[in-house]
């Protein structure tokens, strides 16, 4: 059965990073399509890793003119292949915040036609981002994104991190906040994601599995150029 994952969330929460990880893991066992549906920014998008995606025999769909220097993005007709063709897994990486999730609204009838259990709409949360730092902010953004995307969020992803300075406190603090969000909204924590060593440490701390969801170790592919050449903060 075809499975579709939609990653939405606050700008800079790590959607593209997770989209690559979801797609790469899925591609190990099945036919996978990855859709770059970020219609907000022309840069910092997963299409920048297009070569890597195609090398793994994943079909990549990008907005017209993405990564070309032209600042006019438009939705390609090719997005329809997500629904029309016979994939095992399709991953949608969507633009940030409510404005980014608006692009999903156009596919409302396609998503509505899916069988129950085929679709996961996942809100990627990094509580270290200023607009996702509190329970109230997360709930407000979640509600706005649901309205704009015309979709119900089925789960949250605790992807709390401080980029290269991520430490053991980050997933733990994310857990505490998402626990409250989950209790208040009824939306479960579907995944907890992080680099292997940090994830292992978090899992060894004995938190309630109900608010951890499925642990998923990730690799970092969306490194920025400047991480290779600028002096790190000390």
């Amino acid at each position: 059965m075809k499975k579709i994952y939609i990653l939405i969330g606050n700008y800079g929460s790590g959607k593209s990073e997770l989209a690559l990880n979801f797609a790469f893991q899925a591609a190990e066992t099945g036919r996978t399509e990855l859709i770059d549906l970020d219609m907000v920014n022309t840069y910092f998008r997963l299409t920048e890793r297009g070569k890597m995606v195609r090398q793994k025999e994943i079909r990549l769909v990008s907005p017209n003119f993405a990564c070309s220097g032209i600042e006019t993005l438009s939705l390609p007709a090719e997005v329809a292949s997500a629904f029309a063709l016979d994939w095992d897994t399709v991953v949608f990486d969507v633009g940030g915040d409510a404005v980014g999730s608006t692009a999903l609204g156009r596919y409302h009838s396609d998503f509505a036609a899916l069988e129950p259990g085929q679709l996961e709409v996942l809100n990627v949360v990094n509580i270290r981002r200023p607009l996702s730092g509190t329970v109230e902010k997360i709930i407000r953004l979640q509600e706005e994104m649901q309205v704009h995307s015309r979709l119900q969020i089925t789960g949250m992803i605790n992807n709390t991190n401080l980029a290269t300075m991520t430490g053991p406190d980050d997933l733990r603090d994310g857990y505490e906040i998402l626990k409250e969000v989950s209790d208040r909204t009824g939306i479960p924590v579907a995944y907890t994601t992080g680099r292997q060593e940090l994830l292992d440490q978090f899992l060894s701390e004995g938190h309630d599995p109900k608010y951890i969801g499925k642990p998923m170790a990730i690799d970092i592919y969306m490194k920025r150029d400047w991480e290779s050449y600028i002096h790190s903060l000390s």
């Binding site: 800079g12 990094n126 270290r128 981002r129 200023p130 730092g133 991190n161 401080l162 980029a163 300075m165």
Partner: peptide, 14 residues
């Protein structure tokens, strides 16, 4: 308390 911010956002907030 550290937050992860893009330079533009951080400059504006500051």
């Amino acid at each position: 308390a550290l937050t992860l911010m893009k330079g533009s956002e951080a400059i504006a907030e500051a």
